[in-house]
Every structure is written in C-alpha cells, then in structure tokens.
C-alpha cells in the first residue's frame, strides 16, 4: 500500500532511505525458505520425492492453479475476488472438448476459442462489478452458479468421453515437455514474468494497486477505476481459458463436476503468496510460490501415504499462517 500511493515525505530524511520498491518482498523470501525446507525434508524422508517424474508431476498439476492465479492476483490487488473461476473453467473445458472431439479443431484454433470464451466470461464479471455496484464476492458467487448451469447445459447431462489429444503439446505427457519441464509450466513462467513487469513498471499496472488501496482516491487522482477493474476480471477469464486447455491436456474424459473447488485452491495460492485480500498489495511472484507450496504439500501428503483429506487441513493452516504473518508486518509497518 505504502509503496503504491507515491507519498511525498514531509521532512527531508536524515539518512537515505532504501528504495521503496524491492525486487523481492519479505513474504516471498519466507515462502522460498519454507518450500525449500519442505523439499529438503521430503527428499530425505522419501526416496520418491526427488525424482524427475514426481517433480514434473508437481509442476504440471500446479500450472493451472498458477495460471489462474496470475489473473486472480490482479483481481485481488484491486480489492476484488473471483470465486467463479471453477465454473468458468468448466464452461471453457466442455466447449473446447466438444470442438476438439466433434468438430476436429486443431491445437491453436481450439486454444484461441478457449481464451476468447474465457475473456467473455470474465468480462461479464468485470462489467457487473464495475457498473453494477455489487460486491465482487456476490457477483462471482452468482456467476459461479450461472456458469455452472451453462456448462451443464452444454454437457447435456452426459460427460464428454474420448477427447483426442489435441492439447498434448501442453499436456502432462512426454510430448508436453521441453528440457524436461512441462510446457504448461514454461507458459506459466512467461505469462507470470510479463504480468510481474506490467504490474510493476507500467502505469496502468500500478493503477491496479491504486484502485485496491483506495478506489475513491484513485479516481480523484485520475485513474480509470472501472476500466482497471474490468481489465483484471477479463485477464482472469483469459487465464482460465489457458488453464482449461492445460487441464484437458492429453485428452480423455471431461466430467460434469470439472473445476469444482478450483477457485478455493487458486485463492489459497494467491493469499499464501502474500497478496492482501483487502487489496492494494501483492505480487505475481508470490502467487507462483504460493501455488508451488500448495502443490508440494499435496504431493507430500500422497507420498508420505497420509490420508489425502489432510491436504486441506494443511492448506487451511498455511493460509492462516501467511495472513497472520502479513497482518503482523502490516501492524509493524503502520506503527513505524
């Protein structure tokens, strides 16, 4: 928050202060530490964790969450939230699964359709939030149901089986890897890097923080608040479109409950990554690390052959710790 509003110091500082914008935030360092520690412990405790197959698997399963997290970071930074991403993913997945299977779409056209349909779904959220004057959680709770209805209607009360492997180039198989790393993850990294630069160096990117810090003040300062809000939801929709392609991956079966609960995992990754839920603070880098931590925990519970239901307990715990640490730092910052 303080880094974004560009305050002018009242008195000239006695000592030269450190630049406000740091390349890496404290929370991100902590996350790297925790994840690294987990990896160390796991590779000592199990002999299956530190194998290329398992690491590839973690990266691939984390990729959709991280992809959507890129957009979700922007949304939450503007003090919004989008709980409809799971249903959005369901709509996009059933559409492209049918296109690939029945209309014989190739990789790129199907990808384009996915991104565009994601854009449209996101734009509806954005318009309702910006112009409807409704709280984002209410809007997206509503569209969560509406989009799920749309998806089920397209499904026509049966699942889509036998989807061919049009998306294998970004799927989880061997042809979906470059230099041993899943292409989906490369895609995530490139997009995240672009978004990181945008939110850090572009004027409109900084405006996202201003909107989240205080929308009223941002408007007075000349920020196009509504346009920025809409852009965040539209971006999330596009990310969902990409993630849907990754989720279909090498094809197979698309079930009707697909994407249910995805929104909570994405929000968990974003929040664990240090983005403040009340807006105005957070980075895409943190979200990537948060997603990685969630993926590591999920994998760890499986490898240690604990009950898989415990995964959620750990994710809940990590959310509380991450937000608690953030609150402490915030309190110290405002006390200074």
């Amino acid at each position: 928050m303080t880094a974004t509003t560009g305050q002018v110091d009242q008195a000239p500082p006695v000592t030269r202060r450190r630049p406000r914008v740091r390349a890496i935030e404290g929370q991100e360092v902590a996350l790297i530490g925790v994840t690294g520690l987990l990896w160390l412990v796991l590779s000592l405790a199990t002999d299956t964790f530190l194998t290329s197959g398992n690491l590839q698997n973690i990266l691939f399963t984390v990729a959709p969450i991280a992809l959507i997290g890129i957009g979700m970071t922007a949304v939450i930074v503007t003090a919004g939230i989008d709980v409809s991403v799971g249903s959005q993913a369901a709509v996009v997945m059933v559409v492209i699964a049918l296109l690939v299977r029945d209309a014989g779409f190739a990789f790129l056209p199907a990808l384009a359709v996915a991104v565009v349909s994601g854009l449209v779904l996101g734009a509806l959220n954005g318009l309702l939030v910006a112009y409807g004057g409704i709280h984002p959680i209410i809007v997206t709770f509503g569209t969560l149901n509406i989009y799920r209805f749309v998806a089920l209607q397209i499904f026509g009360s049966e699942q889509v089986a036998g989807v061919p492997g049009a998306f294998a180039p970004i799927g989880g198989g061997a042809e979906g890897r470059v230099f041993g790393v899943p292409v989906a993850w490369w895609l995530t990294l490139v997009l995240a890097a672009g978004m990181w630069c945008y939110m850090r160096f572009w004027a409109t990117g900084r405006h996202l923080y201003a909107v989240g810090g205080d929308a009223f003040a941002a408007r007075l300062a000349g920020v196009r608040v509504r346009r920025r809000q809409i852009s965040a939801y539209v971006l999330t929709g596009a990310c969902v479109g990409l993630a849907a392609c990754v989720l279909i991956g090498s094809g197979g079966l698309v079930q009707q409950n697909v994407g249910a609960g995805l929104e909570l995992r994405v929000i968990a990754a974003v929040v664990i990554g240090g983005t403040s839920i009340i807006g105005g603070r957070g980075t895409v880098l943190g979200t990537l690390l948060g997603a990685l931590l969630v993926g590591t925990v999920t994998s760890a519970v499986t490898l240690l052959s604990w009950p898989t239901e415990l995964t959620q307990l750990f994710i809940g715990g990590f959310i509380l710790v991450a937000v608690g640490v953030d609150l402490l730092r915030e309190r110290r910052r405002s006390a200074r």
Binding site: L264, V271, L313, G317, I319, L320
Partner: peptide, 10 residues
C-alpha cells in the same frame, strides 16, 4: 473471507 476460507478447509 480468508479466515473462514481457511477454517472451511480445516
């Protein structure tokens, strides 16, 4: 929102 999301999980 976040506190009850976390406890929802737990």
């Amino acid at each position: 929102l976040i506190a009850t999301l976390a406890t929802y999980y737990a």
